[in-house]
Design a protein around this nucleic acid. Structure first.
Lengths: 237, 237
DNA sequence: ACCTGAACACCGTTCAAGT
DNA sequence: ACCTGAACACCGTTCAAGT
């Protein structure tokens, strides 16, 4: 991806304040977490590393690559922290919640995963989910479909959830608590035009007392039920 | 949302070249479709409307609002064009494919839906899916879960698919056709580290000959099977 | 009421010059 | 090899001035 900063046993300049790709990525993550996506600026990053913007370009090709690297670092750490389980169903829950919580904690990760879904970060998640699909007994081509469906759902809902949370925290007074927020949303849904939005109106009553993470897992369970209900094997290619 | 340009029977300046919110949004959509998200610039937009950037700000609060309006216009049109069906299963397929194709045709719509999921555009899709969930016989709180799961999956997969297509068209030579692209992707997956990515490697063989839209619908069917397999009703709130 | 376009503050990125 | 920081090209947005 980028120029390696160490190739072979060259001049060992191990000053502890040396600028490395790793330090840059860590600083970028800190900025991203603190000030959101707009907070990551080459000037701000340079300031936090006590250099000029140009210095960063020696280690990193451009801003896009920096975002990819930051995202991959967070996702790799997250996947590493997910506890395993002998029961595939439970293991899938844990992987899914790991992603969900990571994106909630770092909303920019969600945006980045949608922007560059072919990068390693996405593959890491896919691999983890896929192994459990295999453990579930799914075989052949159906593995591919099952894992892809889970991945699409997990990323999609996690991103939407994180964006909505951000909105709740920012647009509304940050003091507004979750209960009040859900009630406000329910009130808004109830005021929608009765002819255009009959379903949304009727379902508004279920909004308060609603738990995002539980709802998220309920969706996973729907997919898992669908997977289990199908002919579970078929010969490979 | 913004200042209305007509309120009451004021001065009727119906010159056909008058700047209206509608014309601005249409021009924005054209720019977005032609040059992607980066193509929408207040300067470029002003040029295409033969005015200065400042003029646009009289009709539209800022760029964010413009993106919201453009997205809503595309989604509203898309939902209007979806053919109905007496069979809920089929109706859901059509709604889902409508969204899928719209985002493939206008990738910026996908990015925007992820960025502001609480806007009307998302509600339009939710409402359509929800009605069919109702038609499926789901009752009470389960309606909420089923509709939300479908929405999360549909948006998530559509966005990922559109971004991947863009990547294929841009990064690879645009001449590369779909078959070659899938084979290249499969080759890449097969070269992954065997210890870290056993599942992804093993599933690479299924990548060629893979049809995105069919795979997308297969995922929908998994969810629908899950919905059907559950206790289908429960008393309302 | 509505439009014009210069000006402001801020970006990502480059690059000649340093060590 | 690696860093510095001014400079370039470009943005979103504002606003005094026009009609």
């Amino acid at each position: 991806m980028a120029k390696k900063s160490t190739r072979g046993p060259e001049r060992e300049r191990r000053r502890e304040d040396a600028l490395t790709r790793e330090r840059i990525v860590d600083a970028a993550i800190a900025l991203l977490d603190a000030d959101g996506e707009d907070g990551l600026t080459f000037r701000a990053l340079a300031a936090s590393l006590a250099t000029g913007p140009g210095a960063i370009y020696w280690h990193v090709t451009n801003k896009g690559e920096l975002l990819v690297a930051a995202t991959d670092a967070v996702v790799a750490r997250t996947m590493g922290e997910v506890r395993g389980s002998t029961r595939p169903h439970e293991a899938i829950h844990r992987i899914a919640l790991g992603v969900f919580d990571a994106i909630e904690a770092h909303p920019w990760v969600g945006a980045q995963l949608s922007r560059a879904p072919w990068e390693t970060a996405m593959l890491r998640i896919y691999e983890r989910l896929g192994r459990q699909v295999e453990a579930l007994g799914v075989r052949g081509r159906a593995q591919f479909t099952a894992a892809s469906t889970l991945l699409g759902y997990v990323i999609g809902v996690s991103v939407q959830n994180a964006t909505a949370s951000q909105f709740a925290r920012r647009e509304l007074a940050p003091s507004t608590n979750r209960v009040d927020f859900l009630e406000a949303a329910a009130a808004r849904w109830s005021e929608l035009d009765a002819r255009e939005y009959p379903f949304t109106r009727s379902v508004a009553a279920h909004l308060p007392g609603h738990d995002d993470r539980k709802e998220f897992l309920a969706g996973i369970d729907l997919i898992l039920a669908g997977i289990a209900g199908r002919p579970i094997s078929s010969s490979a290619t």
